[in-house]
Computed example of a mutant assay.
Amino acid sequence: MADIVLPGESVNAKHPNLKLGPGLLQLPGGPLISTKAGTLRHNSNRSKWYVESNSRRYVPAAQEAVIGVVVGKNGAEGFRVDIGGPHNANLDALAFEGATKRNRPNLKVGSLLYARVSLSHKDMEPELECFDAQTRKSEGYGELKGGFVISCSLKTCRQLLDPNHFLIPLLGSKFPLDAAVGLNGRVWVKSKEPKHVIAAVRCMERVDPEGENLDGKSVNEFLDTLDI
């Protein structure tokens, strides 16, 4: 049974390569505590721990995938990106697969990005990268062209990133669909047919715990009522 934690509670999380996600803080020389109320979660090998709550306020955490919007440039060195957190994030112009000083991405204000948080600290602005930390390949990160972005609760986004969650495979069985899920409460969907994009968005709204919280059977029945 999942543990419910409150702000300031001590958390017994141990692993040789322990990584802390949102809602957890390691005090200098002290215990590991929760910083918000919610459900204590961890990944399959118990190396990454976080507190899950049904919130729309995103607090950046290292290694998390996010969907951002370019809101400005840092001269010729990089970009300022809105990821829905307390502060805009910085993205170096060389933080892309194969990028060099002569070959940099030409992003404009308003461009959508699928990126990874490479650095996050409470006293610093977060930093982003558009490649996988281990392979140094894009692995799906980079500019998102076309499509539509929907805002969801953070809990919904975490559920959609679970390989066992039903929604995205179910939608993919109904019509061709590209999707990217950011842990900052944003989901990007793209399809050749506008009606397919609309159907996907409506389904995501209905599985959101803040909405109707539909299960797989109910979503499948709802899709059968649509002209897709």
Rank of each mutant, 00 (worst) to 15 (best):
E125T: 00
F166D: 01
L154M: 11
S111P: 02
L113R: 07
L161M: 15
L167F: 09
R116V: 13
D178S: 14
K137T: 14
E97T: 00
G140H: 03
G147C: 02
S118G: 13
H165E: 11
Y141S: 00
S173E: 14
P105S: 00
P176L: 08
I150G: 01
E129M: 15
E127R: 14
P194V: 09
W188I: 04
G140C: 02
A133V: 13
L161S: 09
F131E: 02
Q159T: 10
T156N: 04
G98W: 00
L177T: 04
S138L: 06
K137L: 14
V109P: 02
R136P: 10
G185N: 03
N184S: 02
V197T: 12
R158M: 11
S111I: 07
H121K: 13
K108S: 15
S138T: 13
C152V: 15
G172K: 15
G142Q: 00
G98F: 07
V187W: 09
L170G: 06
L144N: 06
D123Y: 09
L128Q: 10
T135D: 06
K122V: 12
A199K: 07
A199P: 11
T135K: 05
L177E: 07
L128F: 04
E127T: 09
V189H: 09
E193D: 14
V109T: 12
P126L: 08
Q159L: 13
R186L: 04
L171F: 05
K108F: 10
A99C: 11
N106G: 08
V109C: 01
F131K: 08
V181A: 00
F148S: 12
G185Y: 00
Y141R: 00
D162G: 07
F166I: 09
C157P: 00
M124W: 11
N184T: 09
V197D: 06
H196P: 01
K145C: 01
P126A: 01
S153V: 05
G172Q: 15
L177I: 06
L128E: 06
K137G: 07
N184L: 02
K155Y: 06
W188M: 04
K122T: 13
E129S: 15
S120F: 06
L167S: 01
N103P: 04
L167C: 10
L160D: 03
E125I: 11
G182F: 01
G140E: 00
D178L: 14
E97A: 08
A115P: 04
D123K: 11
G146V: 00
Y141F: 15
V109H: 05
A180H: 07
F166Q: 00
D178K: 13
L128S: 06
W188E: 01
K101Y: 12
T135E: 09
E139N: 13
H165N: 14
C157L: 00
I150E: 11
R186W: 04
M124S: 13
L183C: 02
F148G: 05
Q134N: 13
R186A: 08
E143L: 12
R104E: 06
V197A: 00
V187F: 10
R116N: 12
N164G: 10
R186V: 03
L144K: 05
R102K: 15
G110F: 10
L112H: 11
G98C: 07
K122M: 12
L112R: 13
F131M: 07
A180K: 13
Q159I: 03
R186D: 08
H196L: 06
K122S: 14
K122G: 13
E139C: 12
D132C: 01
